[in-house]
Design a binder for these strands. Structure first.
Length: 580
DNA sequence: GCCGTTTTCGGCCCGACTGTTTTCAGTCG
């Protein structure tokens, strides 16, 4: 049975094929349907089973025709319509569209003129100088395509943590329930909450590993079994990610967890400390020599990580900090910062609604935020120069403010909606909303959404000029990167941090999984300079609020304490921290 | 192909940028 993401992917490809043929309006319809499907947590198969075609049509963006195509996909695993389209242009759409600057029309031309079907074909054609001869392409296009392919290659087979996290939780949750599984934990970069991960490592303690392993290799997510043993199994999942499961003895669980969590650099440093003390640290435990017994070791610690760190003479180090960037020295001196916790946020300062490109109303977003325990949100719809989103002009912003006043009355102090905006920073650093209206907002944020290819100095000046505006409290996603897709624009981050400090402007950690912007090391720099940060979901729908977790993780990787994050304060206290 | 506190038919996010062109197609957000 096809899963939601697989069906969404097919609909999205249909949209791109229709785009190739310049079919009007249908591409957007298919693309919207795909987005609608990505928004829902219930499997389409279940929706269809319980309510048939009618239930499918209730999903936003899905009508009679697309519902029938989903029905066909669920029943047969195929779509005639999709396959007809694919036959006309049999190319690897998802990889080709991931090249920056290449869209459906170019893909069609490249296939028809040069028989290019995938990235390898494309790269070869460029090396042979064939692309520049096509009308509409030139030397510059070749250079840009090549640059983008190189960037994609560097990403390799990595996955954005936040996007695969739900699947990880399902797998771990299921394993946890198996009889005889005493302990379970993810390890590796997923436990350190790195922004992207290469594979998934899971450790368990169980007296009887056979049935656990059997279960693991036959999970519905598994595409291929790479190894299936008593203590270790490896599978490749349908999404292309590898997952390893190891069974370890109870007395070694902490040591194994420490070893497989890494980072490698952190582990090497720990092992050196052990050696200096005359001990030995490996994935089975921390051992000391038995006097007078040649090469005989006895275990000092290993069942938990805490006892290992303690035995090495230091405080427990949170996984997010284990990069050997000074955390070990602090742990020895008992001076580790108390990191902001996963439940410490009281508000969310970047929320999009259906006033622009969000999926839900202001009230729906507020209720969803309240449900996950937040006390306030700021509504930050796009502004007018971002035309594609229906960005707000001054008039529309004022209308929205009135609407928010009404809603706040309705919430009657139980929840607070703050008036804000994601104001667009124009090419010269000026803003597309006038100061008079900006001053009326509770909090205003600014961000760059266009002209990414500016020289470093110009881009730095542009952002700094926005920060000099007394009405701008916060800069959203300050470096503009999109993980595995687009690098950050050229920017002097030290200068941006300096001006942020000088002007009292806050910087954001955008928690959206493929942004995580500022990234950990920049956020750490900002905190070090005394700049306050905000952790925001950048939610475009109620489901996105859960992404806050990944922003908090990034902040923890940046050694942030609660006091460094403005939205860990109640809203009246938070407003007092702003420069306005 | 979808959708309706402007509509069950007639609209659909649209302006800027890039690199190719000599006035514009394609892509992006």
């Amino acid at each position: 049975m096809l899963e939601n993401f697989e069906i969404a992917k097919i609909l999205r490809e249909i949209s791109e094929y229709l785009e190739m043929q310049s079919v009007p309006f249908k591409p957007q319809a298919y693309s919207r349907a795909a987005s609608g499907i990505e928004e829902i947590d219930t499997p389409l198969a279940d929706i269809y089973k319980s309510g048939g075609l009618k239930a499918l049509e209730n999903i936003p963006g899905i009508g009679v025709s697309i519902a029938e195509k989903i029905e066909e996909l669920l029943k047969t695993g195929h779509s005639q319509y999709y396959e007809e389209l694919k036959k006309q242009t049999p190319v690897d759409l998802s990889s080709l569209t991931s090249v920056e600057g290449i869209g459906p029309k170019s893909i069609k031309k490249l296939y028809e003129k040069l028989n290019i079907r995938n990235l390898a074909d494309l790269e070869e054609a460029i090396r042979e100088g064939k692309i520049r001869k096509l009308s509409g392409f030139g030397v510059k296009s070749e250079e840009n395509i090549l640059k983008s392919i190189e960037f994609l290659k560097q990403g390799g087979q990595r996955f954005v943590l936040g996007f695969v996290y739900p699947q990880i939780e399902v797998i771990v949750g299921r394993l946890k329930k198996i009889k005889g599984v005493e302990k379970i934990s993810v390890a590796g970069s997923s436990r350190r909450m790195k922004e992207t991960i290469g594979d998934l490592d899971i450790l368990i303690v169980s007296e009887n590993s056979g049935p656990v392993m059997d279960f693991f290799v036959t999970m519905p997510e598994v595409r291929q079994v790479l190894a299936h043993g008593e203590t270790k199994s490896m599978v490749r999942l349908k999404n292309g990610m590898d997952a390893d499961l190891r069974v370890v003895p109870k007395k070694s669980f902490g040591a194994a967890l420490n070893y497989f969590t890494g980072s490698k650099e952190h582990n090497v440093a720990l092992r050196e400390i052990a050696i200096k003390k005359g001990h030995k640290l490996n994935e089975y435990g921390l051992f000391k020599k038995i006097p007078n017994a040649n090469e005989n070791w006895t275990q000092m610690a290993g069942e938990t990580e805490e006892e290992i760190y303690q035995a090495l003479g230091m405080d427990y180090i949170e996984p997010e900090m284990r990069e050997n960037l000074g955390e070990i020295e602090l742990a020895k001196k008992h001076q580790l910062p108390k990191l902001i916790g996963y439940g410490d946020l009281k508000g969310d300062l970047q929320i999009q609604t259906n006033w622009t490109d969000g999926a839900h109303s202001i009230e729906e977003m507020a209720l969803a935020a309240q449900k996950i325990g937040l006390e306030y949100i700021a509504i930050t719809d796009h502004t007018k120069s971002l035309a594609m989103t229906g960005g707000a002009d001054e008039k529309k912003l004022l209308r929205q403010m009135a609407e928010i006043d009404k809603l706040n009355k309705k919430f009657d102090g139980q929840f607070k909606i703050l008036k804000s905006a994601e104001v667009n920073i124009l090419k010269d650093g000026s803003l597309d909303i006038n100061d008079k209206v900006l001053a009326k907002l509770d909090i205003a944020a600014a961000a760059v959404h266009s002209n990414f290819n500016m020289p470093r100095e110009k881009m730095t000046k542009r952002i700094c000029r926005a920060m000099e505006n007394p009405n701008i409290d916060l800069i959203f996603h300050p470096t503009g990167r999109v993980l595995l897709k687009r690098p950050a624009y050229e920017l002097d981050i030290d200068e941006v941090i300096r001006v942020a400090k000088k002007t009292g402007t806050c910087l954001e950690i955008d928690a959206f999984p493929d942004r995580l912007d500022l990234k950990d090391i920049y956020a750490k720099k900002a905190i070090g300079a005394g700049v306050k940060l905000a952790i925001d979901s950048d939610a475009h729908s109620v489901n996105h609020l859960q992404y806050l977790r990944f922003g908090i993780a990034q902040a923890r990787r940046a050694w942030a304490a609660k006091k460094d994050i403005i939205n860990s304060y109640s809203w009246p206290e938070m407003l007092k921290l702003l420069k306005r």
